[in-house]
């Protein structure tokens, strides 16, 4: 039981971080960013390069991931999404753009980093073992704590900073925010950069545990969309809740159902379908969008 709880918290924290960036971008711009998983992978590769290859301190490599993805996100918003949104009222235009970006990133990652699985040295050695009732490597505990701290920091930033308030205003009502003097173009770019930075941050954190390879982007995006759908699209607290719920479902399923084969995700998908049939807007989403 203790192991299931620990695994649930650990998985939930990392999943929530992955979903946060995706839901933030959706809330601000109504863009389903299919390239979010690829941004996560790119963040992992940046940390791999600086920490694993060049031997820089992990914290600096993590910062490099955040900055690289933030800059990339800002550029993508400014030169790709913003013009498309300006010129087209059709939502599928941005969806196609995001899908195209995902393919582009996959191709670039293959060219730059190759096809192999990459890993980095452990940031902390040793395993916490409580009488074999709870076994957890120290690096997982550290990453879990860092992920929770990042989520709390993000919530505080969104709640109390001027930029955070502007972003929330933008998410609630774009026109009203504009009328209140919020520079919509600027804060859209900042919001997209922040979402991409979150993807880079979690990619950089998790590369120390899971490693990274070019094929991880698509499945990561799918999981992120699942969490966002569970919690409610565009709702920050919903993404966190969705991540934690998915993390616990996975941890419980793998522990309890393992003797029946890999039916954990089958049951998760079935549960998600039933849940969405009953509550299509998710736990915390509004029925009107």
């Amino acid at each position: 039981m203790e192991q299931i709880l620990a695994n649930g918290i650990y998985l939930g924290a990392q999943y929530a971080m992955i979903a946060l960036g995706l839901t933030l971008i959706f809330a601000l711009m109504n863009v389903l960013n299919f390239a979010h998983g690829q941004m996560y992978v790119l963040g992992g590769f940046v940390t791999y390069t600086f920490y694993g290859q060049l031997g820089w301190p992990f914290v600096i490599a993590l910062l490099a991931s955040c900055i690289t993805l933030a800059v990339l996100g800002a550029l993508i918003e400014r030169f790709l999404f913003a013009p498309v949104i300006r010129r087209s009222n059709r939502e599928e235009s941005t969806m196609l753009l995001a899908a195209g970006l995902a393919f582009l990133f996959d191709a670039l990652i293959l060219l730059i980093f190759g096809e192999k699985q990459r890993g980095v040295p452990k940031i902390i050695n040793g395993v916490f073992n409580w009488d074999f009732r709870l076994i957890m490597p120290y690096d997982r505990i550290l990453i879990c704590v860092l992920a929770i701290l990042s989520i709390v920091t993000f919530i505080l930033f969104m709640q109390y900073s001027k930029t955070g308030r502007a972003l929330r205003a933008l998410a609630q009502d774009r026109t009203a925010a504009q009328l209140m003097g919020v520079n919509v173009a600027r804060y859209s770019m900042i919001g997209f950069a922040l979402g991409a930075m979150l993807a880079g941050l979690v990619g950089g954190l998790l590369v120390t545990i899971t490693g990274v390879n070019l094929g991880m982007g698509g499945p990561t995006s799918i999981k992120a969309f699942m969490m966002v759908m569970i919690g409610g699209a565009g709702v920050i607290s919903g993404a966190i809740a969705g991540g934690i719920i998915l993390g616990f479902m996975e941890a419980i399923g793998l522990a309890v159902l393992s003797q029946y084969g890999d039916i954990t995700y089958l049951l998760i998908f079935v549960s998600l379908m039933v849940f969405l049939a009953i509550r299509p807007q998710g736990l915390m989403g509004k029925p009107w969008g």
Partner: peptide, 11 residues
């Protein structure tokens, strides 16, 4: 697409 195998291998 599993990335963390600790829960998988525990049993």
């Amino acid at each position: 697409d599993t990335t963390d195998f600790t829960p998988v291998l525990t049993p």
